[in-house]
Design a binder for these strands. Structure first.
Lengths: 258, 258
DNA sequence: AACTGTGAAGATCTTCACAGCA
DNA sequence: TGCTGTGAAGATCTTCACAGTT
């Protein structure tokens, strides 16, 4: 997952760790909630609790953005909201297209948190001619034939793919060819994209499988020691070694930048 | 994101790294596709390409499961499918409940990849009395009042929360109290759960914000150097230093095991 | 006194590169 | 010869613990 290549070989500095970037939205959400409650300042401890991380990590994360806190006091909520928003590029408007308006696409189109943070659903696109013109979430669905024109007319650089797996790569290729450089993929397929295009994927099935793994471990909790074949039949002969196991814990990847 | 504590202090061994666990479903998907095309064996190189990772990583990942390949040849597809399935706990059936049958919940209920891999939608639950009895994806929606009974009757240990943010924590508490120990959360909130319960979250808005961050970087590609305030107004005075920046790349967290 | 910012230690993950086996 | 399996090096991320600042 990731071709491991650096975009800008030069000017190494201001390199915010990817792990930190992934947490900024979390902090932003917590801060926004505080802001709505008119809380003026927060300590790293409080904010960390609200965001579900530990405070040392939060402080380290913020240290990459600059020194935005005040020792002995904490962080100014409004100020931090602004700084993080700017860092994430949310002070500008991002037109987004959603391709594939099935159940999921419709759910995404209706998702409120969308518009709230700099994102605007510029268009909905589907391959079914019967859908064309029908409004979903107040936006008329357009046909795939016009994909390129829609992307260009709206200056879209972020595309969301919610099509069936079979259509995803083709849609992806067309989006990229039309100028999209960031893709959020909900289809259960590995998309291949040229260098410079970022792909993030969201896959329900994968998440469930990871949960199942840990769930299974919990079940065999203190039933360690023996670990023979339990269900079904294994093709081929002998397996390798097996012993006890370990509990879950730890975080996990989810991107695949180009 | 994680309370960082190890489930099983004892028996350290057979500890498959979390990063590896997160990739197993990816390999499994690629292998299943090969299996359907009746391909008998694959090399780490080929399989890695299909899964979108590099081959060294894949080999290392498999080495944690055991020695399932044959030097000079590759891996037996069927055998690997079985071994990974077993490792992930997919040789057994996992009844799942989905709470919150709005657009998203319905999309999830209809999601095919669900049933295909050991998961079975045991029940759909919604707080709206008007929904009760209505079939979604062929399954009648039940009312939240019966949540505890449904969980227990079906022996459910995995719950999916697709409710609005405001209801998520409450639903979570009830699920946990009724015996659920793994939760997939689609609501944009941090859930707090007792020790021993795993939570994974899927948040569209967060994914988009991460993409926006990278997108912004691309835009200012070779426009480095100056970096003044562009939009909106920043509350409070001076900011910290600013210089050039770096391109994206790398993977990122998404879990919060209890 | 309270809380941030950060070097340094530790843990985890990735990649290299090659020994070892079919 | 071809490809797996894996020690070891390197990169990244997390956590500690405390100096520094208000």
């Amino acid at each position: 997952m990731a071709t491991g290549r650096t975009h800008r070989p030069a000017t190494r500095s201001r390199g915010i760790p990817e792990a930190t970037v992934a947490r900024l939205p979390l902090y932003l959400r917590a801060l926004t909630a505080l802001s709505e409650r008119s809380v003026p300042t927060v300590s790293s401890e409080e904010l960390a609790a609200a965001a579900g991380v530990n405070s040392a990590k939060l402080r380290k994360d913020f240290s990459y953005l600059g020194s935005y806190g005040t020792r002995g006091v904490g962080y100014d909520v409004e100020y931090l909201v602004y700084q993080i928003s700017r860092e994430l590029g949310l002070t500008q408007d991002w037109p987004v297209v959603i391709v594939g308006i099935g159940n999921l696409g419709a759910a995404l189109a209706n998702y409120g948190g969308f518009a709230s943070r700099g994102f605007r659903v510029a268009a909905l696109i589907d391959a079914d001619p019967a859908m064309a013109g029908k409004p979903v979430a107040g936006i008329p669905v357009q046909h795939t034939d016009d994909l390129e024109k829609i992307i260009k007319d709206n200056g879209v650089s972020i595309g969301v793919i919610a099509t069936p797996a079979g259509a995803a790569q083709q849609v992806c290729d067309r989006l990229v060819a039309a100028g999209v450089t960031s893709i959020l993929n909900f289809a259960p397929t590995v998309l291949s994209v040229p260098d410079g295009v970022d792909v993030r994927k969201v896959d329900l099935s994968i998440e469930l499988q990871i949960l199942a793994f840990h769930e299974q471990r919990k079940a065999g909790e203190e039933t360690a020691a023996g670990d023979g074949a339990l269900t079904a039949a294994a093709p081929r002969g002998a397996a390798a070694d097996h012993s006890a196991d370990q509990g879950p814990d730890g975080d996990v990847p989810a991107v695949m930048p180009a």
